[in-house]
Structures are given as C-alpha cells and as structure tokens.
C-alpha cells in the first residue's frame, strides 16, 4: 500500500514538473518578445526543477543523494533568477522600443 502511494506521489511530481518544463520550453520558443521569453525560461528553471527534484527525492528516499539534489536545487535557484534579472536589465537598457513592448512601473 505504502509503495503504491509513494510511486503515485513520485509520478505526480515528475509529471507536473515535466509539464512545467514543457510549458517553459514552448514559451521560450513561441513568445514574441525577449522579456516574455525570459519569464518563461525562469519558470522552468525554478518551479519545474523544484517539482522534478522532489520527485527524485521521493524516488531515491532520504539519504546522501537527497543532500546533493538539494544542493543542485539551491544552486539553480540562486543562479537562474540572477541571470534572468541581468538579461532583463540588458534588454531594458539597450532596446530602443522597450516602452512599446513592456509596461514600466516607475517607483
């Protein structure tokens, strides 16, 4: 019974993670403007990776590998948003038609 439950959880997390990754992939390729593409790419690297990591942790059980997976997750959560931020900043500074494509909130 417990094994079935565990496998069901694992499959649920893996499939939802793959769905998020697929969404992000389609978004990166289909969106028209760079800011939107950055948004789509960042989603796959954070939420999709989280779900897949949880699935991997459930599959392997809690041991040394869990720590490694968590390290990978932390690394990606640190780096991926930062690179997205830098890309967005570069776009906002270099694109001449930025106003027309994106709404800017003045603070």
């Amino acid at each position: 019974m417990f094994e079935y439950l565990r496998f069901g959880l694992f499959a649920l997390f893996l499939v939802s993670g793959l769905f998020i990754q697929l969404t992000s992939l389609i978004g990166v390729n289909r969106f028209r403007y760079s800011i939107n593409r950055i948004h789509a790419a960042g989603m796959g690297d954070t939420l999709g990776l989280l779900l897949i990591s949880v699935a991997a942790i459930i599959y392997t059980g809690f041991d040394g590998v869990t720590l490694k997976i968590l390290f990978i997750l932390g690394f990606f959560w640190l780096t991926s948003p930062v690179s997205g931020h830098l890309l967005g900043r570069l776009v906002s500074e270099t694109d001449e038609h930025f106003q027309a494509e994106a709404e800017i909130w003045k603070r």
Binding site: F75, L78, V82, R89, L90
Partner: peptide, 16 residues
C-alpha cells in the same frame, strides 16, 4: 552596458 554595481548579482556572487 555592463552591469555595474548590480546589487543582486553581487549578492549572488558573494554566496556563490
């Protein structure tokens, strides 16, 4: 155009 004094990048770099 290079990111200068970018607080977010610098904080992440300090950790990484």
């Amino acid at each position: 155009f290079e990111p200068r004094h970018d607080e977010i990048l610098q904080t992440a770099t300090r950790i990484l």
